[in-house]
Amino acid sequence: MKIGIMSFAHVHAAGYARLLAATPGIEVVAADPGDHPDGEVRGAMLAAELGVYYLDDYEDLFTWEPDAVIITSENARHRADVERAAAAGAHILCEKPLATSWEDALAIRDAVARAGVTAMIAYPVRFSSDFARLRAQYRAGALGEVVAVRAANNGKMPTGRSWFTDPQLSGGGALADHVVHIADLVDALTGATPVRVTATSNRLLYADRDAESAAVILVEYSDGMIAALDSSWSVPQQAPAWGGLQMSVLGTDGTVDVDFFGSAVRGVTSSGQAVEARYGADLDATMLTCFLEAVRTGAQPQPDVETGLRGLSIVLAAQESAQTGRTVDIAELMER
């Protein structure tokens, strides 16, 4: 199977390349065209470090006729890259968020449908064994009716990729970067439709950047469930791990707390430095396995474009709410 990687912009691109290069029966080729910011290892240099074949532009990549591509470009460039890949007949795994505007997201949906290719959104946390157990408990009725969710996705501000804090390329800051992961877990667990969002955000951390570094949002769902989501780049750069994602699910018959990255060995070095070694399955590897199997069989993998649309609608509504100080109706916002 032939898999192309479109851009090394995203921090996850290198990990995907390594995993694919180590997978039997997979040929992987990367292309990362354009000018790259000073100090960022990109392009042919990064491909050489990763041990993957490199082409200079996307035209050459699609002349190679990949079966599928992984799109890890800047968020604002997802639409153009998806449209190009879909027109070439390649199946798609696209980094999150799906897009930075509703118009671009709908264009992505239409391009995929028109071309008849499958598209999957990169939400690896839903592939964790912790989430599988949570969903099994919910489906077995152990929680009863879910009435509320409280979740936090806190991490370090991304470094080494300057576009993450440029709203023109990223679509936002910590809110756009983190909320979609939590939204996907709620979506996959309950299937409820988000209807209204109230949010607040600030730039108290990393005030020299143009994007918000922290946000708290309240999402109201069609079935009456509410979800309070904490999203921030509040973990210090000196911390031993990047951050984490925790979720509490309150049901009429029980409550479950989940720490998705809590499995770790922690300690202190002789010099007093904190260390943390996490263990467990590689969620990116599990997600890629699902995607590759879908490419082989032609099945539609989850999460799909519709999932990406629902997550993006929450982000866009939260951004408007934080700006205006008002609760935002998602349907009304999307109809503008």
Results as ranks from 00 to 15, higher is better:
M1V: 03
G4D: 09
A9F: 01
A9C: 10
A9N: 12
A13I: 00
A14R: 13
G15T: 05
A17V: 01
L19A: 15
L20Q: 01
A22M: 03
T23G: 01
D32C: 14
P33H: 07
P33S: 06
D35K: 12
P37S: 04
D38T: 05
D38R: 03
G39M: 04
A44D: 04
L46H: 06
L46M: 10
G51R: 00
V52F: 01
Y58N: 10
E59W: 02
W64R: 06
E65F: 13
P66E: 14
D67A: 14
T72E: 00
S73N: 15
E74G: 02
A76C: 15
R84K: 15
A86H: 09
A87R: 11
A88D: 14
G89N: 14
H91Q: 08
W102V: 05
A105M: 04
L106D: 04
A113I: 09
A113V: 07
A113R: 10
T118L: 14
I121C: 09
F127N: 12
S129C: 02
R133N: 03
R135H: 06
Y138G: 07
R139M: 04
A140K: 07
G144V: 03
V147T: 11
A151Q: 03
A152H: 08
N154T: 14
N154R: 06
M157P: 04
P158V: 06
T159R: 12
D166R: 00
P167R: 00
G171V: 06
A174P: 04
L175T: 09
H178L: 09
H178E: 15
H181K: 11
A183L: 06
V186D: 07
P194E: 01
R196M: 13
T198H: 14
A199C: 10
R203Y: 05
R209S: 01
D210G: 05
A215S: 15
V216I: 13
V216K: 10
E220I: 06
E220G: 07
S222Q: 11
I226N: 13
S231G: 09
S232T: 08
S234I: 00
P240R: 15
G244R: 13
Q246P: 01
Q246G: 13
M247Q: 15
V249T: 02
G251F: 02
T252I: 02
G254N: 02
V258S: 14
D259K: 14
V265S: 13
V268W: 12
S271D: 10
S271M: 03
G272K: 01
A274I: 03
E276H: 12
L283G: 03
C290K: 11
F291I: 02
V295L: 12
R296C: 06
R296A: 12
T297I: 01
G298P: 05
Q300H: 14
P301G: 09
Q302V: 11
D304E: 10
D304Q: 07
E306L: 11
E306T: 09
G308A: 05
G308V: 04
L309T: 08
G311W: 01
S313W: 02
A322G: 12
T324V: 05
G325A: 02
T327S: 03
E332I: 02
R336P: 00
